[in-house]
Write a protein that binds this DNA or RNA. Structure first.
Lengths: 194, 194
DNA sequence: ATCTTGGTGGACCGATCGGTCAACAAAGCC
DNA sequence: GGCTTTGTTGACCGATCGGTCCACCAAGAT
């Protein structure tokens, strides 16, 4: 019937997401998006719409992947304290490994885009609430299983851990010291009553 | 001898800093800087140099003020735990009050500028280390005074508190709930051994 | 009053921005 | 072979970007 696409949309979106992640929204031009995907402007706009729309889609993809991974890690059959510790340490390692993509697309979206792009603000807020509720439900289960005290304020701790997991990447930009970051993780774990 | 300045450099810099803080680096144009200060381009460039230079100067001013305030708060003659608590809660209040200037110029500098502007990266890193050493020295004193256990890992806790104080503003954008944020502060304080 | 010095405003510059569009290319249908 | 439909490309658009420059102006020195 008609000509078919000469590229995989998923792969292109992944490359775009990584570029936004590395450079931020404003500093990434549409020409950059064309270069990284190998697409002409027409194809890019036909597939993804405006720069703002493709950014929002990148952000959605990012938070989906991150939160899915989070839920997977928290649903493992290990004590919640260890699961959280592993999860935070893994993020430290990721940040130190991917030096070309520092920071966090989500944090970038909040500080750079939320004020200008209500949809991005909405995506970010939903992502944070999803992270929070993932922690909260893991903590509820752990409390029911007697891993943490009955009096523990699950919602507060969940919000606290959300802040930790969000901010670790940002911190590791200016403080790329694995030992110190690991000890920060352990300090944070003190908030998780035994 | 010659004509004198028709504006106060300090006030202009303050207005510029607040604008960068509110909008980020890339989204703020030189025309915006002229508008907010009331200056023509000539005066602006004569007084502050390029956009990048005035940004760096804004950032320097920001971190100076923040760190000076931090040291003042920590040097009060109150138990360190309470000093830290007051300090974190004050930041929560600030974030919720100044809704027009969400986020944190320092975090913005790290995620948006550090990769493109080595000087901004340097300023940010120095600021973080200054915050960290302010906490560390306060904790050292507190440990010497017996307020916290002798075995406490002061450096790690200092790094952890630095992360907290940095990130609270960012979190409060997407989670503008004073009660929850206050309970996050209390959860964080668990990392400060009694 | 005139000269010198330096602050001021805004016209102006080339470059680049995000976005559009028309000419062309591929693939299934007749 | 045409015909239709859709993907692709890159020239092109007006707007805006950061930065320069110059005519003008205020104020102290003479």
């Amino acid at each position: 019937m008609t000509r078919q696409r000469g590229f995989a949309e998923d792969e292109a979106l992944l490359k775009i997401m990584r570029l936004f992640w590395a450079k931020g929204y404003e500093a990434t031009s549409v020409a950059d998006l064309c270069e990284v995907t190998g697409l002409g402007r027409g194809s890019l706009y036909a597939a993804f719409g405006s720069k703002q729309e493709v950014y929002e889609r990148s952000l959605r993809h990012y938070v989906d992947v991150v939160n899915r991974h989070l839920r997977d890690q928290l649903s493992r059959q290990v004590p919640v304290r260890q699961a959280v510790r592993d999860l935070l340490l893994e993020r430290v390692d990721d940040s130190l490994t991917e030096r070309d993509r520092p920071g966090c697309l989500l944090v970038g979206a909040i500080v750079e885009r939320a004020a200008h792009d209500p949809m991005a603000a909405r995506i970010a807020q939903d992502a944070i609430n999803a992270t929070r509720s993932a922690f909260a439900s893991a903590l509820h289960s752990a409390r029911a299983a007697g891993q943490i005290p009955y009096e523990s304020d699950v919602e507060s701790i969940a919000a606290f851990l959300t802040r930790m997991v969000q901010g670790l990447r940002v911190m590791s930009i200016s403080l790329p010291d694995r030992k110190l970051l690991a000890s920060v993780v352990d300090a944070a774990l003190e908030a998780l009553p035994a």
